[in-house]
């Protein structure tokens, strides 16, 4: 994508080709500047603690030491594997709940006619303006009151009903022609069937986008888990990494290995679903 024809109908002269090569080199150098820190991370993660500072002089460590990766998981007090599980568990459930509830609400906002619809939707929209920090204190108080503090439910439930997800899916569903619903209702489908067999499959790209957003956001979430979790067994990856850093502040290779592993799932998700994500980001803005 993105090959906007900025020089239409021009023949490729030598000057133009030279310009293109120069531009390619610039793109390459910029790309390298984005890539090198990750490379450095790998190099640090396979070094001995004593050798990390040498890397700036020698680039590679004396011997590649892959032992740091298993060491991350084999520790008496810090259960890194558990953090991984927790992050997947929490982000996964939030994503599932969001997909179901937001798509249903979006159906009600985009396909059904009912009194008061636009007013309720305006209420949803209005809350999008409110910064997230406003919600932290009261939600914390509510969660404590409901007995979900320091519990999986406290990590999952409060962040599972976003107005943003509803808004995004509604915008997406509005692009599906209404004649499809009408055809289905003439074919004999009721609302639940139209939702589940017509709208849901057609809104799939939008739902995938929302699911990626929800998963990545909650996988990386920091503030909320930080205040809601006190039990070490409930720590998600970001909180666990921070704890890891405090107890292993000096062991840079170990921390690099841990943080590198934490980065892998988002990268995989991105590479596999890149097409949807890029479209989704652009859709969210154009319609927003």
């Amino acid at each position: 994508m993105g090959n906007a024809n900025t020089s239409p109908g021009r023949r490729e002269g030598p000057l133009l080709i030279a310009g293109r090569i120069a531009l390619f080199v610039v793109a390459l150098v910029v790309g390298l500047s984005f890539f090198v820190p990750f490379m450095w991370q790998v190099l640090m993660s396979i070094s001995e603690v004593a050798d990390v500072d040498l890397l700036t002089k020698t680039v590679t460590p004396p011997e590649a030491n892959w032992e740091n990766y298993p060491r991350v998981f084999n520790h008496e007090q810090i259960e890194f594997g558990r953090y991984f599980f927790n992050s997947f568990f929490v982000a996964g459930w939030v994503t599932i709940i969001q997909v179901i509830t937001c798509s249903m609400a979006a159906y009600a906002f985009s396909r059904l006619q009912w009194p008061g619809r636009d007013k309720v939707f305006l209420g949803y929209l209005g809350t999008l303006m409110v910064p997230g920090v406003v919600l932290m204190v009261p939600t914390y108080a509510i969660v404590r009151y409901m007995g979900m503090f320091n519990d999986y439910t406290g990590l999952i439930i409060p962040v599972s009903f976003t107005a943003y997800g509803t808004f995004l899916l509604r915008q997406f569903m509005l692009t599906i022609p209404t004649s499809l619903d009408e055809a289905a209702s003439i074919d004999g489908a009721g609302h639940w069937r139209i939702y589940s067999q017509i709208i849901l499959p057609l809104a799939r790209p939008g739902i995938i986008v929302m699911a990626i957003f929800a998963f990545l956001f909650n996988y990386n979430a920091f503030f909320w888990p930080l205040i809601i979790v006190k039990d070490e067994n409930l720590r998600t990856l970001p909180i666990g990494l921070l704890a890891f850093n405090t107890s292993y502040g000096q062991e840079t290779p170990l921390i690099m290995a841990a943080s590198l592993m934490a980065m892998i799932p988002p990268v995989i998700i991105f590479l596999v679903l890149q097409k949807y994500l890029v479209k989704g980001i652009q859709l969210g803005a154009v319609k927003g």
Partner: peptide, 24 residues
């Protein structure tokens, strides 16, 4: 129509009221 809409909306609306609108 309102009842049908509520059936679709409610799961999200309750969460929205308790964890977004109410807290504000």
């Amino acid at each position: 129509a309102l009842l049908i809409a509520l059936a679709f909306l409610l799961p999200n609306l309750i969460g929205f009221l308790v964890f977004t609108f109410g807290p504000i």
